[in-house]
């Protein structure tokens, strides 16, 4: 077995193992009524999501994702709900912005939801590290000539195309693979990037109205378009 494969196997086992204590912390703190424990619950849920996302990318690398027709707005609604408690820790407001006719797209719901959630959390962490004053994040979708763009946007340029490329170059080689993320290691962004590859919808920087952000281009579902 190659060294790289062995490392991946080891990390997968480690991630699987870590899910249990993180889940224990999350559930125990969820049951406690105090404010501090509620915060611990949110923090451990986020750590659990990261670890779980890594194991999912490993599992999905061995299978072919079954894409299904879905509306991006329904996924963004789920992502907003998932991100809300994490965003609240940083005094952020999450908003959704749906532009144009909501055309069905082909995607894998669980992977797309996870990818956008990790992206959102990464942008919040990046903005927090940059000490920016703004406190909102837009989960947006709009149409383009080739399909539907779904992504996470803010009025900061912390996660630009350049930052994304740098992350891909430094991933696995540097402890801090995204300089704009401060002390966060950028694993969320790297995992989101891997999920986007598995969705055949690579991440890249997009503009949404006057906002900056990162997202994916999803192809329309021709089949569902006929009935909607």
């Amino acid at each position: 077995m190659r060294q790289e494969d062995q490392t991946d196997t080891l990390f997968t086992a480690l991630a699987e193992q870590l899910k249990t204590p993180l889940l224990q912390i999350a559930r125990l703190s969820e049951l406690s009524p105090t404010h501090d424990m509620a915060r611990i619950s949110v923090i451990s849920e986020h750590a659990l999501r990261l670890v779980d996302a890594y194991t999912q990318t490993q599992v999905q690398a061995q299978t072919k994702l079954l894409l299904e027709p879905l509306t991006s707005s329904s996924v963004l609604y789920d992502v907003a709900n998932a991100l809300q408690p994490f965003a609240k820790q940083y005094d952020y407001t999450i908003e959704t912005d749906l532009r144009g006719k909501n055309v069905p797209v082909m995607a894998h719901r669980a992977s797309l939801r996870l990818m956008l959630t990790l992206l959102g959390a990464s942008i919040i962490e990046a903005d927090n590290a940059a000490g920016s004053g703004h406190r909102y994040l837009i989960l947006g979708t709009h149409r383009s000539a080739k399909g539907t763009i779904v992504g996470v946007f803010s009025n900061q340029v912390s996660l630009s195309q350049k930052a994304l490329q740098l992350t891909r170059q430094l991933h696995g080689k540097a402890a801090q693979s995204v300089p704009s993320l401060g002390q966060a290691g950028g694993a969320g962004l790297a995992i989101a990037d891997r999920l986007s590859e598995q969705l055949a919808a690579p991440l890249r920087a997009y503009r949404h109205q006057s906002l900056y952000g990162i997202g994916s281009l999803l192809l329309p579902s021709r089949q569902l378009q006929l009935v909607i």
């Binding site: 224990q24 559930r27 049951l31």
Partner: peptide, 12 residues
């Protein structure tokens, strides 16, 4: 199988 998760589920 996990004792702690079992106990939290039981409490809930």
């Amino acid at each position: 199988s996990d004792r702690i998760l079992g106990q939290t589920t039981q409490s809930v």
